[in-house]
Design a protein around this nucleic acid. Structure first.
Ligand SMILES: [Zn+2]
Ligand SMILES: [Zn+2]
Ligand SMILES: [Zn+2]
Ligand SMILES: [Zn+2]
Lengths: 158, 158
DNA sequence: CGATAATATGCAACTGGTTGCATTTGCAAC
DNA sequence: GTTGCAAATGCAACCAGTTGCATATTATCG
Protein backbone atom coordinates (compact mmCIF):
# COMPACT_ATOMS: atom_id res chain seq x y z
CA UNK A 1 0.00 0.00 0.00
CA UNK A 2 2.46 2.62 -1.12
CA UNK A 3 -0.31 4.92 -2.30
CA UNK A 4 -1.73 5.07 1.18
CA UNK A 5 1.67 5.99 2.51
CA UNK A 6 2.15 8.95 0.19
CA UNK A 7 -1.44 10.04 0.81
CA UNK A 8 -0.66 10.15 4.49
CA UNK A 9 2.43 12.22 3.88
CA UNK A 10 0.44 14.64 1.74
CA UNK A 11 -2.13 14.96 4.52
CA UNK A 12 0.62 16.01 6.87
CA UNK A 13 2.43 18.49 4.68
CA UNK A 14 -0.62 20.17 3.20
CA UNK A 15 -1.72 20.93 6.73
CA UNK A 16 1.56 22.64 7.41
CA UNK A 17 3.29 19.98 9.44
CA UNK A 18 6.87 19.11 8.57
CA UNK A 19 7.88 15.85 7.05
CA UNK A 20 10.66 14.47 9.22
CA UNK A 21 12.36 11.10 8.78
CA UNK A 22 10.81 9.93 12.06
CA UNK A 23 7.32 10.77 10.91
CA UNK A 24 7.83 9.16 7.56
CA UNK A 25 9.15 6.03 9.24
CA UNK A 26 6.17 5.84 11.62
CA UNK A 27 3.69 6.29 8.80
CA UNK A 28 5.33 3.67 6.65
CA UNK A 29 5.45 1.13 9.46
CA UNK A 30 1.79 1.77 10.19
CA UNK A 31 0.63 1.64 6.59
CA UNK A 32 2.54 -1.54 5.86
CA UNK A 33 0.89 -3.59 8.55
CA UNK A 34 -2.73 -4.62 8.81
CA UNK A 35 -2.84 -5.06 12.58
CA UNK A 36 -2.45 -2.66 15.48
CA UNK A 37 0.93 -1.75 16.89
CA UNK A 38 1.79 -0.41 20.31
CA UNK A 39 3.95 2.67 20.75
CA UNK A 40 6.63 0.52 22.25
CA UNK A 41 6.69 -1.90 19.31
CA UNK A 42 6.85 1.03 16.93
CA UNK A 43 9.76 2.49 18.85
CA UNK A 44 11.67 -0.78 18.83
CA UNK A 45 11.11 -1.33 15.13
CA UNK A 46 11.91 2.26 14.27
CA UNK A 47 15.23 1.98 16.03
CA UNK A 48 16.29 -0.90 13.85
CA UNK A 49 16.09 1.34 10.80
CA UNK A 50 17.17 4.48 12.56
CA UNK A 51 18.76 3.99 16.00
CA UNK A 52 18.57 7.62 17.09
CA UNK A 53 14.79 7.83 17.31
CA UNK A 54 13.72 8.85 20.74
CA UNK A 55 10.72 7.51 22.58
CA UNK A 56 9.27 10.93 23.25
CA UNK A 57 9.16 11.56 19.52
CA UNK A 58 7.24 8.36 18.92
CA UNK A 59 4.67 9.21 21.59
CA UNK A 60 4.32 12.81 20.50
CA UNK A 61 3.87 11.90 16.86
CA UNK A 62 1.36 9.16 17.54
CA UNK A 63 -0.58 11.75 19.50
CA UNK A 64 -0.40 14.22 16.63
CA UNK A 65 -1.30 11.69 13.95
CA UNK A 66 -4.28 10.58 16.02
CA UNK A 67 -5.50 14.15 16.47
CA UNK A 68 -5.19 14.71 12.74
CA UNK A 69 -7.25 11.60 12.11
CA UNK A 70 -4.54 9.85 10.09
CA UNK A 71 -4.12 7.18 12.73
CA UNK A 72 -6.72 5.43 14.83
CA UNK A 73 -6.06 4.64 18.46
CA UNK A 74 -7.68 1.84 20.43
CA UNK A 75 -7.53 1.71 24.21
CA UNK A 76 -7.42 -1.87 25.45
CA UNK A 77 -7.56 -0.76 29.09
CA UNK A 78 -4.97 -1.00 31.79
CA UNK A 79 -2.88 1.52 29.91
CA UNK A 80 -2.50 -0.73 26.87
CA UNK A 81 -3.03 1.37 23.76
CA UNK A 82 -2.49 0.46 20.12
CA UNK A 83 -2.47 2.30 16.81
CA UNK A 84 -3.24 1.65 13.17
CA UNK A 85 -3.77 3.77 10.07
CA UNK A 86 -7.29 5.13 9.91
CA UNK A 87 -9.29 3.02 7.45
CA UNK A 88 -12.94 2.89 6.48
CA UNK A 89 -15.20 1.39 7.51
CA UNK A 90 -14.45 1.48 11.20
CA UNK A 91 -14.30 -1.62 13.32
CA UNK A 92 -14.34 -2.49 17.00
CA UNK A 93 -13.03 -5.31 19.15
CA UNK A 94 -14.46 -7.78 21.62
CA UNK A 95 -11.73 -9.04 23.92
CA UNK A 96 -12.12 -12.13 26.08
CA UNK A 97 -10.93 -11.42 29.59
CA UNK A 98 -10.16 -15.09 30.12
CA UNK A 99 -8.37 -16.40 27.00
CA UNK A 100 -7.56 -12.98 25.51
CA UNK A 101 -9.04 -14.00 22.20
CA UNK A 102 -10.07 -10.96 20.18
CA UNK A 103 -13.02 -10.69 17.79
CA UNK A 104 -13.21 -7.85 15.29
CA UNK A 105 -16.71 -6.53 14.66
CA UNK A 106 -18.17 -4.03 12.25
CA UNK A 107 -19.01 -0.57 13.50
CA UNK A 108 -22.68 -0.75 12.59
CA UNK A 109 -23.22 -3.02 15.58
CA UNK A 110 -23.10 0.20 17.57
CA UNK A 111 -25.35 2.29 15.34
CA UNK A 112 -28.47 1.77 17.45
CA UNK A 113 -26.70 2.64 20.66
CA UNK A 114 -25.19 5.72 19.08
CA UNK A 115 -28.62 6.86 17.91
CA UNK A 116 -30.12 6.20 21.31
CA UNK A 117 -27.46 8.25 23.07
CA UNK A 118 -28.05 11.09 20.65
CA UNK A 119 -31.84 10.97 21.10
CA UNK A 120 -31.96 10.58 24.85
CA UNK A 121 -28.98 12.63 25.96
CA UNK A 122 -28.01 14.75 22.99
CA UNK A 123 -24.62 13.09 23.20
CA UNK A 124 -22.60 12.37 20.07
CA UNK A 125 -20.49 9.37 21.02
CA UNK A 126 -17.12 8.67 19.40
CA UNK A 127 -17.49 5.19 18.01
CA UNK A 128 -14.39 4.90 15.90
CA UNK A 129 -12.45 2.10 17.41
CA UNK A 130 -13.63 0.67 20.70
CA UNK A 131 -12.62 -2.36 22.73
CA UNK A 132 -15.16 -4.13 24.93
CA UNK A 133 -14.26 -6.81 27.44
CA UNK A 134 -16.19 -9.91 28.39
CA UNK A 135 -16.17 -13.65 27.87
CA UNK A 136 -15.98 -15.31 24.49
CA UNK A 137 -18.26 -18.19 23.64
CA UNK A 138 -15.83 -20.92 24.66
CA UNK A 139 -14.94 -19.33 27.97
CA UNK A 140 -18.51 -18.77 29.14
CA UNK A 141 -19.07 -22.39 30.02
CA UNK A 142 -15.74 -22.88 31.75
CA UNK A 143 -14.70 -19.49 33.02
CA UNK A 144 -11.63 -20.32 35.10
CA UNK A 145 -8.83 -22.69 34.17
CA UNK A 146 -8.38 -21.45 30.63
CA UNK A 147 -5.29 -19.99 28.98
CA UNK A 148 -4.44 -17.13 31.34
CA UNK A 149 -5.38 -15.48 34.55
CA UNK A 150 -7.12 -18.04 36.67
CA UNK A 151 -7.60 -17.19 40.32
CA UNK A 152 -5.15 -19.86 41.37
CA UNK A 153 -4.03 -18.55 44.73
CA UNK A 154 -6.23 -17.99 47.70
CA UNK A 155 -6.77 -21.24 49.64
CA UNK A 156 -10.05 -20.20 51.27
CA UNK A 157 -11.61 -18.55 48.26
CA UNK A 158 -14.86 -20.37 47.53
CA UNK B 1 -23.87 4.09 55.26
CA UNK B 2 -22.30 2.19 58.11
CA UNK B 3 -24.26 -0.94 57.23
CA UNK B 4 -22.69 -1.06 53.82
CA UNK B 5 -19.27 -0.75 55.35
CA UNK B 6 -19.70 -3.68 57.72
CA UNK B 7 -21.26 -5.75 54.94
CA UNK B 8 -18.17 -5.15 52.87
CA UNK B 9 -15.95 -6.25 55.73
CA UNK B 10 -18.00 -9.41 56.17
CA UNK B 11 -17.66 -10.13 52.46
CA UNK B 12 -13.93 -9.99 52.84
CA UNK B 13 -13.51 -12.07 55.97
CA UNK B 14 -16.02 -14.77 55.10
CA UNK B 15 -14.06 -15.37 51.92
CA UNK B 16 -10.93 -15.92 53.93
CA UNK B 17 -9.19 -12.60 53.37
CA UNK B 18 -7.76 -10.83 56.37
CA UNK B 19 -9.15 -7.62 57.75
CA UNK B 20 -6.26 -5.21 57.98
CA UNK B 21 -6.44 -1.56 59.03
CA UNK B 22 -5.50 -0.52 55.50
CA UNK B 23 -8.35 -2.51 53.99
CA UNK B 24 -10.82 -1.22 56.50
CA UNK B 25 -9.72 2.33 55.81
CA UNK B 26 -10.06 1.89 52.06
CA UNK B 27 -13.50 0.37 52.35
CA UNK B 28 -14.71 3.06 54.69
CA UNK B 29 -13.44 5.84 52.44
CA UNK B 30 -15.13 4.23 49.46
CA UNK B 31 -18.43 3.54 51.18
CA UNK B 32 -18.65 7.04 52.62
CA UNK B 33 -18.49 8.81 49.30
CA UNK B 34 -20.99 8.70 46.47
CA UNK B 35 -18.58 9.55 43.67
CA UNK B 36 -15.58 7.77 42.19
CA UNK B 37 -12.12 8.11 43.67
CA UNK B 38 -8.76 7.52 42.03
CA UNK B 39 -6.11 5.33 43.63
CA UNK B 40 -3.97 8.38 44.15
CA UNK B 41 -6.71 10.30 45.94
CA UNK B 42 -7.39 7.29 48.12
CA UNK B 43 -3.70 7.04 48.98
CA UNK B 44 -3.46 10.71 49.89
CA UNK B 45 -6.57 10.60 52.03
CA UNK B 46 -5.57 7.36 53.69
CA UNK B 47 -2.24 8.86 54.72
CA UNK B 48 -3.95 11.63 56.60
CA UNK B 49 -5.51 9.09 58.92
CA UNK B 50 -2.64 6.67 58.85
CA UNK B 51 0.64 8.03 57.47
CA UNK B 52 2.36 4.68 57.05
CA UNK B 53 0.11 3.34 54.29
CA UNK B 54 2.09 2.46 51.24
CA UNK B 55 1.00 3.04 47.68
CA UNK B 56 1.56 -0.55 46.65
CA UNK B 57 -0.91 -1.63 49.29
CA UNK B 58 -3.53 0.73 47.95
CA UNK B 59 -3.09 -0.51 44.39
CA UNK B 60 -3.00 -4.16 45.39
CA UNK B 61 -6.11 -3.89 47.51
CA UNK B 62 -8.09 -1.98 44.93
CA UNK B 63 -7.21 -4.77 42.53
CA UNK B 64 -8.35 -7.40 45.01
CA UNK B 65 -11.56 -5.63 45.94
CA UNK B 66 -12.38 -5.22 42.27
CA UNK B 67 -11.80 -8.90 41.55
CA UNK B 68 -14.01 -9.80 44.48
CA UNK B 69 -16.74 -7.56 43.09
CA UNK B 70 -16.90 -5.33 46.16
CA UNK B 71 -15.60 -2.36 44.27
CA UNK B 72 -16.36 -1.24 40.74
CA UNK B 73 -13.64 0.14 38.53
CA UNK B 74 -14.18 2.54 35.64
CA UNK B 75 -11.50 3.21 33.06
CA UNK B 76 -11.66 6.79 31.80
CA UNK B 77 -8.90 6.15 29.27
CA UNK B 78 -5.40 7.53 29.14
CA UNK B 79 -4.59 5.52 32.23
CA UNK B 80 -7.12 7.38 34.37
CA UNK B 81 -8.98 4.82 36.47
CA UNK B 82 -11.44 5.40 39.30
CA UNK B 83 -13.18 3.25 41.90
CA UNK B 84 -16.40 3.19 43.85
CA UNK B 85 -18.25 0.62 45.94
CA UNK B 86 -20.24 -1.73 43.78
CA UNK B 87 -23.89 -0.68 43.89
CA UNK B 88 -26.99 -1.82 42.05
CA UNK B 89 -28.22 -0.97 39.54
CA UNK B 90 -25.12 -0.37 37.43
CA UNK B 91 -24.49 2.87 35.65
CA UNK B 92 -22.22 4.16 32.90
CA UNK B 93 -20.75 7.50 31.91
CA UNK B 94 -20.74 9.72 28.87
CA UNK B 95 -17.75 12.03 28.96
CA UNK B 96 -17.45 15.11 26.77
CA UNK B 97 -14.03 15.25 25.18
CA UNK B 98 -14.30 19.02 24.87
CA UNK B 99 -15.68 20.40 28.15
CA UNK B 100 -15.13 17.23 30.22
CA UNK B 101 -18.70 17.31 31.42
CA UNK B 102 -19.85 13.86 32.52
CA UNK B 103 -23.34 12.41 32.21
CA UNK B 104 -24.33 9.34 34.21
CA UNK B 105 -26.65 6.95 32.38
CA UNK B 106 -28.49 3.83 33.42
CA UNK B 107 -27.13 0.46 32.39
CA UNK B 108 -30.22 -0.61 30.46
CA UNK B 109 -29.18 1.75 27.67
CA UNK B 110 -26.74 -1.00 26.77
CA UNK B 111 -29.11 -3.93 27.07
CA UNK B 112 -29.85 -4.13 23.34
CA UNK B 113 -26.20 -4.00 22.40
CA UNK B 114 -25.37 -6.64 24.95
CA UNK B 115 -28.06 -8.92 23.56
CA UNK B 116 -26.88 -8.32 20.02
CA UNK B 117 -23.30 -9.20 20.87
CA UNK B 118 -24.50 -12.39 22.55
CA UNK B 119 -26.69 -13.36 19.58
CA UNK B 120 -24.29 -12.55 16.80
CA UNK B 121 -20.96 -13.42 18.34
CA UNK B 122 -21.75 -15.52 21.40
CA UNK B 123 -19.88 -12.88 23.37
CA UNK B 124 -20.95 -11.99 26.90
CA UNK B 125 -19.83 -8.38 27.30
CA UNK B 126 -18.97 -6.91 30.70
CA UNK B 127 -21.25 -3.93 30.99
CA UNK B 128 -20.79 -2.96 34.60
CA UNK B 129 -19.31 0.45 34.49
CA UNK B 130 -18.24 1.88 31.17
CA UNK B 131 -17.09 5.30 30.04
CA UNK B 132 -17.78 6.47 26.51
CA UNK B 133 -16.28 9.60 25.00
CA UNK B 134 -17.83 12.05 22.60
CA UNK B 135 -19.32 15.52 22.49
CA UNK B 136 -22.05 16.72 24.82
CA UNK B 137 -25.03 18.62 23.46
CA UNK B 138 -23.56 22.06 24.08
CA UNK B 139 -20.19 21.27 22.55
CA UNK B 140 -21.54 19.81 19.32
CA UNK B 141 -22.43 23.19 17.87
CA UNK B 142 -19.21 24.89 18.91
CA UNK B 143 -16.62 22.15 19.17
CA UNK B 144 -13.42 24.15 19.71
CA UNK B 145 -12.98 27.12 22.00
CA UNK B 146 -14.75 25.60 24.96
CA UNK B 147 -13.45 24.99 28.45
CA UNK B 148 -10.39 22.85 27.72
CA UNK B 149 -8.32 21.45 24.96
CA UNK B 150 -8.77 23.67 21.98
CA UNK B 151 -6.29 23.21 19.14
CA UNK B 152 -4.76 26.60 19.80
CA UNK B 153 -1.27 26.05 18.44
CA UNK B 154 -0.40 25.28 14.88
CA UNK B 155 -0.35 28.40 12.73
CA UNK B 156 -0.97 26.64 9.41
CA UNK B 157 -3.59 24.23 10.69
CA UNK B 158 -6.72 24.73 8.59
C1' DC C 1 -3.19 -16.80 76.16
C1' DG C 2 1.07 -17.92 73.27
C1' DA C 3 2.90 -20.29 69.34
C1' DT C 4 2.50 -21.09 64.33
C1' DA C 5 2.00 -20.47 59.55
C1' DA C 6 0.41 -18.14 55.87
C1' DT C 7 -0.99 -13.59 54.38
C1' DA C 8 -0.40 -8.67 53.96
C1' DT C 9 2.55 -4.76 54.31
C1' DG C 10 6.52 -1.59 53.53
C1' DC C 11 10.23 -0.69 51.02
C1' DA C 12 13.21 0.10 47.21
C1' DA C 13 14.18 -0.87 42.58
C1' DC C 14 12.17 -0.75 38.26
C1' DT C 15 9.02 0.31 34.06
C1' DG C 16 6.40 2.80 30.54
C1' DG C 17 5.21 7.01 29.50
C1' DT C 18 5.49 12.39 30.01
C1' DT C 19 7.57 17.03 30.32
C1' DG C 20 10.80 21.16 29.87
C1' DC C 21 14.42 22.75 27.70
C1' DA C 22 18.61 23.23 24.72
C1' DT C 23 19.89 21.92 20.11
C1' DT C 24 18.95 20.67 15.43
C1' DT C 25 16.44 20.70 11.18
C1' DG C 26 12.92 21.36 7.62
C1' DC C 27 11.20 24.67 4.82
C1' DA C 28 10.45 29.08 2.64
C1' DA C 29 12.12 33.55 1.44
C1' DC C 30 15.72 35.94 -0.50
C1' DG D 1 22.70 28.40 -2.55
C1' DT D 2 22.40 30.89 1.76
C1' DT D 3 19.90 32.63 5.62
C1' DG D 4 16.51 32.74 9.33
C1' DC D 5 13.15 31.09 12.22
C1' DA D 6 9.54 28.30 13.95
C1' DA D 7 8.82 23.50 14.61
C1' DA D 8 10.60 19.01 15.78
C1' DT D 9 13.97 16.18 18.04
C1' DG D 10 16.95 14.28 21.75
C1' DC D 11 17.93 14.22 26.23
C1' DA D 12 17.50 13.83 31.08
C1' DA D 13 14.67 14.45 34.90
C1' DC D 14 10.46 13.16 36.37
C1' DC D 15 5.93 10.66 37.64
C1' DA D 16 2.35 7.07 38.43
C1' DG D 17 2.02 2.54 38.92
C1' DT D 18 4.19 -2.39 39.42
C1' DT D 19 7.14 -6.04 41.26
C1' DG D 20 10.22 -8.97 44.42
C1' DC D 21 11.50 -9.68 48.67
C1' DA D 22 12.32 -9.23 53.75
C1' DT D 23 9.53 -8.03 57.71
C1' DA D 24 5.35 -7.55 60.32
C1' DT D 25 0.63 -8.97 61.24
C1' DT D 26 -3.57 -11.63 61.26
C1' DA D 27 -6.32 -15.60 62.36
C1' DT D 28 -6.23 -20.12 64.09
C1' DC D 29 -5.31 -23.83 67.02
C1' DG D 30 -3.59 -26.02 71.08
ZN1 LIG E 1 -8.79 -2.30 15.52
ZN1 LIG F 1 -12.17 -16.74 25.88
ZN1 LIG G 1 -19.59 5.47 37.81
ZN1 LIG H 1 -19.03 19.42 26.30
Amino acid sequence: MKTKHSDLIDSLTTRGYRLTPQRELLLSMLSETDTHLSADTLLTRARKAYPRVNKSVVYRNLELLTELGLVSRVDFGGGHVEYEVHRHPHHHHLVCRNCHHMIGISSDTFADLQRQLADRYGFSADMDHLALFGLCHDCQTSEPANAHAQRSHHPHAL
